[in-house]
Design a protein around this nucleic acid. Structure first.
Lengths: 338, 338
DNA sequence: TAATTTAATGTTATCGGTAACATTTTATAA
DNA sequence: TTATAAAATGTTACCGATAACATTAAATTA
């Protein structure tokens, strides 16, 4: 590997002069500068970021930890984070926890040993608290995305889950639906809790009875075992006319399960959900959703993180919370009830 | 930050002894070992990976560069790479080129300065050649995924694009289709070229005439402008009864465009494509596809890369090429023609 | 022209680890 | 008991960069 010492030797200057040319710091005569530049080109010099980080005590690296890399909500978010990171001169590392608190722990270790300057986390759930405490203990700035964790104050970007749930339920009732079920993520995930709350409130406002048999609390992540959805469908009697899904993946699992028993959407069952389907959203006929602004989650979160990093000493800076609106996109997965 | 020197001081030993305890190297008495361990815990010691990499001249970092992070083919591939990397003791960095040769260049720079031990690349296309040459020049081992680049020999994992195209066309003809169109990625992407070839060969084998008006060569990546698809539809007269799409994203764009003119799939138009839709594959009624083994692309590619890294000196090791089969999954996007 | 700034460049120490070699203890053999 | 091998630990140099503090050369000023 070519180092600044190789450059220095060949250009007949000191390593420090080379460093100055590279970083455009200090005073350098034009003659020296161009000579050093020429040698760098000749030798195909590439700066060693690790050596630089070691002495500067900063890596210009951010880490994005998401819970499901196959979910377009998170990948779109990642695109936003990537763009914002680049804009601010940071590079971005990714990790994928698969909604598993254990994998999350592994990534927290990686984060610490890698000495990243800051972290964007979509926590797996409330049990992620110890991981966040670890980050805090080691003074690694972080921003939470999409989910809060009780017991941990921090910067955070959220979607308006409660309002979103209300919009979905209102849409359904406005088309005549009265038996509306909810399939949701685990109650130890804050967004799932809020969606349940919004659902309940909307029922009440529409003078509909809440029936806990109509609610299934499962996991947001995709899995092959659909038996809990099946038994849930069995236990609802009569079947609802519409289902609200807590996210896109659950919605598709519902479609699949319904299909197995010959029930189609929207003819026999109406279905709405949270989160768009990324590049596959516009398939027709397709899901009416509350689309969260995934890209903005990543972009704004990263911006907040960079601010926090740069104001590090100013410990007094209060935590910020951004709540992004949830906009409904009406497509064709809901039919009218007379 | 706590360093091995802090540990050493508090434990009353030398830094080297601490290093030995951490890495389980050399001989250490049980007494010393446990004392050092205790102090490490007390002080919440976390090793600094950058310092370690600097002296070891290896980072235990791999880089995965994909062209579209919102495409489930690549994210599933990423999951495979992640798992394989972890298994071999490497961590994984991601980058997303958006099918842009320029962004790809930026990532190549990042790759070089980050001193990763190896790279997995899905190249944007044939114009990626200079980037690969840069990697080669700097002796960074890499493995190509999904696409080859003429002029650059290397390890590579491919799907059997030609065979896949044949299967799709055969499936259509077996159901009576005679006017079969193809919408494909850019001809400067190797997989697109092979898909076109397979399409042509299959037509010939089925005694169907090749008509270049029935072929649209555009870009694999998603974009908002659908005008080229529209003009393509206009120029086909008569309209085909079936369309083969070069990947999942194109297929959905076709669905969208057709929908705008009131043409539905599969009633008025049959549609098949390459690549599954990840978590959204099982929506019903949905696409008949040739599903590439995305996870295996990542997993096997990473395995090959790690081998290559570890045999670095053995320059004689010949390049390996893995071709994964393309399996057709029949769903409901094709209707029968009498 | 000598004194004083300012510009240009160089030296040394350091970031946090580890390899290679050196030294001190302890255990074993003669 | 002494010589010798093996075990345990320590010292020094270095990985590739930069900060902080010299030092030297050139430009101004008195």
């Amino acid at each position: 590997m070519v180092t600044i010492y190789d450059i220095a030797a060949k250009a007949g200057v000191s390593a420090m002069t080379v460093s100055r040319v590279i970083n455009n710091t200090g005073k350098i005569s034009d003659k020296t500068r161009s000579k050093v530049r020429r040698v760098m080109e000749d030798l195909n010099y590439v700066p060693n970021h690790m050596a630089r980080s070691l002495v500067l005590q900063q890596s210009n690296l951010l880490f994005l930890l998401i819970t499901d890399i196959t979910n377009p909500f998170y990948t779109t978010l990642a695109r936003g984070a990537e763009d914002a990171a680049k804009k601010h001169g940071y590079r971005l590392l990714f990790g994928n926890s698969d909604e598993s608190v254990e994998k999350e722990k592994d990534y927290v270790d990686t984060i610490l040993t890698t000495r990243v300057d800051g972290v964007l986390v979509a926590p797996a759930g409330d049990p992620s608290l110890p991981h966040l405490e670890t980050l805090r203990k080691h003074r690694v700035p972080f921003v939470l995305l999409d989910r809060e964790v009780p017991g941990m104050d921090s910067d955070v970007v959220l979607g308006d889950s409660k309002e979103g749930a209300r919009k979905l339920v209102d849409h359904l009732t406005s088309l005549g639906h009265k038996r509306i079920a909810l399939i949701n993520g685990s109650p130890n995930v804050s967004s799932a809790r809020l969606r349940l709350e919004g659902y309940k409130e909307a029922l009440k406002l529409n003078d509909l009875q809440f029936d806990e048999n109509y609610v299934l609390e499962t996991a947001f992540e995709p899995r092959s075992d659909l038996s809990d959805i099946e038994s849930w469908l069995n236990r609802m009697d009569p079947l609802p006319t519409a289902i609200v899904a807590g996210n896109n993946v659950l919605a598709v699992e519902v479609i699949r399960t319904l299909h197995n028993r010959g029930i189609t959407v929207p003819e026999h069952m109406s279905l709405v959900c949270f989160d768009d389907l990324g590049p596959f959203s516009d398939i027709d006929p397709f899901l009416t959703v509350v689309a969260q602004q995934a890209y903005q989650f990543g972009y704004l979160g990263t911006q907040m993180l960079v601010e926090r990093i740069q104001e590090r000493e100013e410990t007094g800076m209060p935590w910020k919370k951004i709540v992004l609106p949830a906009d409904m996109i009406v497509r064709r997965s809901v039919s009218e009830i007379d």
